[in-house]
C-alpha cells in the first residue's frame, strides 16, 4: 500500500504540492490526471523517493521511506518499476542492455540469459528485432516502449507510469493500455499512472484522482468521474478552455 500524507513540495518560489493526500491500495490501478506542469511527475518521484517532501510523509507498506537507510530504500525500490515521461534510456548502452540493466546489476545471470529475458520483455511491449539497436536509433514511441520493457524487467510489484501513452499513435496507445491492464490482472501489480489522455485513464483506472493547485481535488471510479458535477474536474475531462482552471500562467 502506498500512502502520501500531507505532502508539501516547493522548488524555490514555485510551490508545487500543497498538502497532497493520496492512498493507493495493493493491486489497485490509480490514474492521476491534471494539467501540464501541475506536479504529476513530482508525485511519482516522491513515491519512489527521488524527491523528498519538504513536509509530510510517504508511506510504503507502513514504513516512512524518508526514514530508511540507503540500502533499505534500495530494497524498496527493487519492488518498483518506473517508466519515465521521456523514457530516460541510458544512451551509452544498447536496447537489450537497457532492458536488462537491473538484472545485470542485481543478479548473477549471464549476458545470454539477460538478453533472452530482455527480448521477451521487448516482445511484451510489441517490439521485435530492436535488441541490438542503440537508443538514438529509435523513434519516440519505441523509446517509450523500451522504457516500459526496462520497468517490467525485474517483475516489480508496483509500476509507476509517467504518461505511458503520450506521443504514441492511438492504436499503439491502446495496445499499451491493454498491456497495463494485462500486467495488473496476470501479475497482480499495483499501478500508478499519470496521464492527460482521458481515454486511457477511463480504460486502465480503478480510480482516477485529479490534481489541481497542489492537492488532489477529487478521487472516484471512472464512472463517478464521468458523471461528476465538480466544475474543475468537469472542465478537465471535457477539455474545455473556459471554466475555473485558467489557461494563463501555465
Amino acid at each position: 500500500m502506498i500512502e502520501l500524507i500531507d505532502i508539501h513540495k516547493s522548488f524555490g518560489k514555485n510551490y508545487v504540492l500543497r498538502g497532497l493526500n493520496l492512498k493507493i491500495n495493493k493491486g489497485e490501478s490509480v490514474v492521476v490526471i491534471g494539467g501540464s506542469g501541475s506536479g504529476k511527475s513530482v508525485i511519482l518521484k516522491h513515491i519512489i523517493g527521488l524527491l523528498k517532501p519538504d513536509k509530510g510523509t510517504v508511506m510504503i507498506d507502513n514504513s516512512d521511506i524518508s526514514k530508511l537507510s540507503e540500502e533499505e530504500l534500495n530494497e524498496v525500490r527493487k519492488r518498483f518499476g518506473m517508466l519515465f515521461q521521456s523514457a530516460a534510456l541510458f544512451d551509452s548502452m544498447g536496447v537489450w542492455e537497457n532492458v536488462g540493466f537491473g538484472l545485470r546489476q542485481h543478479t548473477h545471470m549471464h549476458d545470454e540469459e539477460i538478453k533472452e529475458i530482455a527480448i521477451k520483455k521487448l516482445k511484451m511491449v510489441g517490439l521485435v528485432n530492436v535488441e541490438n539497436l542503440m537508443p538514438s536509433e529509435l523513434s519516440g514511441g519505441m523509446r517509450k516502449r523500451v522504457g516500459l520493457a526496462r520497468a517490467i524487467a525485474m517483475e516489480p510489484e508496483i509500476l509507476l507510469y509517467d504518461e505511458p501513452t503520450t506521443g504514441l499513435d492511438p492504436i499503439l496507445a491502446d495496445a499499451i493500455n491493454d498491456l497495463i491492464i494485462n500486467m495488473r490482472i496476470t501479475l497482480n501489480i499495483t499501478s500508478v499512472a499519470i496521464t492527460h489522455d482521458m481515454k486511457s485513464a477511463y480504460k486502465i483506472a480503478d480510480r482516477i484522482a485529479m490534481l489541481y493547485n497542489g492537492v488532489i481535488v477529487g478521487v472516484g471510479t471512472p464512472d463517478e468521474v464521468r458523471n461528476t458535477s465538480d466544475p474543475v474536474i468537469r472542465q478537465f475531462i471535457t477539455g474545455s478552455a473556459s471554466g475555473p482552471i485558467k489557461v494563463e500562467g501555465r
Partner: peptide, 8 residues
Amino acid sequence: DALETLAI
C-alpha cells in the same frame, strides 16, 4: 533518476 529507481 532512472539509475536510482533501479536501485543503483
